[in-house]
Design a binder for these strands. Structure first.
Lengths: 200, 200
DNA sequence: CTTCGATCTTTACAGTGGCAACTTACCGAT
DNA sequence: ATCGGTAAGTTGCCACTGTAAAGATCGAAG
């Protein structure tokens, strides 16, 4: 009875895949290599994820859910808008593999309904956060703010994860080591002008 | 004399690779498939690029050079700082395959000296643009501005290229179709506050 | 005309993903 | 208690890809 059934192979494959993606990027992911690491046959993961893109899609779904829960939590706490952005960057820093996969549609299964639903739910949470900060502003002004804020935080997270923030020595120039502090500093540059221009 | 030598196989492979990357992402790139498309043997590209990552590295180098030239051009024209950001986004939009590869170190050859040099030269151009806009501000203030600006433009370009700007319907809410206009609108939110806080 | 280097081809091998058929374990209904 | 269905896992196979070494072809310099 030793181990025909693994117990929780699905979770084990996911965890190992997250390690590989975080260390070597999504392109280096190999179902066979993962199966070998876990000591199961090379087609065992197929039962849970179908294919290579199926595994990546599952990671993306999990990422969207983690992020959405965190954003919803902040919204319940009536947290300031800036903290949503900070949480976005912190999520990317804490879950680099998830983040690296979530926004790369070429790696994912476009027909997966669960993925679409998870992504939409997360976007809805972001929009709700914007509603809270600028209830009186016009639709276009609000859209401009969310575009700028989302772009800034997404870009910061991306540059950090790809090592480009480090290589460009920005961290040293800023004198900040914590990525959340950097996010607050950069984000506050946006907040100053967005607060000063409610147009209603 | 028909065709033992291709003429300019290197350029042909690069162009075909750019098409594939733009349409299906870097992971879908196959040296053999490209060779087949061009009607040469499957190892011919290897002679020019060495390996798969060698090809991607060559694309990244080309991308850094195109971007650097454009930034240098704007600097010669004493263009406003915002236009550097707009040019950054326009570059990503015009050369999606280059952009998709340039900032993904896991896909590139880290030992390539030419790549490192091309990237450093481009970063230097960006820093020079910041010097021009805020000569009197402190080092940390300038670093904060460049972090926010770079992050914003990089994030906007990334979200646009991955289709996430489209899916989140931000374009429609903004009422802007041209990505450069979106970049100006979003970037101007930053500019307003950065101009108002010279600290010298 | 010869030689040489760059370019391209041929041939070969290992790794990977995906598919089909089969085996083993679990679980609920009878 | 067992019987049958389903989930989980295995083995074997094929097609495709990357990598490598050695040979063939061309252009050009001498």
């Amino acid at each position: 009875m030793s181990s025909y059934h693994h117990g929780d192979l699905r979770r084990a494959v996911l965890d190992r895949a997250l390690e590989v993606v975080a260390e070597q990027g999504p392109a280096a992911l190999s179902l066979r290599a993962i199966a070998a690491d876990l000591g199961v046959s090379h087609t065992a993961p197929r039962h849970h994820f179908g294919s290579n893109t199926g595994l990546l899609t599952a990671i993306a779904i999990e990422g969207f859910e983690i992020l959405r829960e965190r954003l919803a939590q902040l919204r319940d706490q009536r947290a300031p808008f800036l903290e949503l952005g900070v949480a976005y960057v912190e999520f990317a820093s804490a879950h680099p593999a998830h983040f690296a996969v979530m926004f790369q549609p070429t790696l994912l299964d476009p027909t997966d309904a669960t993925l679409e639903q998870a992504a939409d739910a997360t976007f809805a949470e972001l929009r709700a956060g914007v509603e809270a900060i600028a209830p009186g502003s016009s639709t276009q002004d609000a859209a401009a703010v969310v575009t700028a804020a989302w772009s800034l935080m997404h870009g910061l997270a991306t540059l950090e994860l790809t090592g480009n923030l480090e290589r460009s020595q920005i961290r040293r120039l800023l004198g900040l080591t914590d990525i959340a502090d950097i996010a607050r500093r950069a984000g506050s540059l946006l907040g100053a002008s967005s607060r000063s221009a409610p147009s209603s």
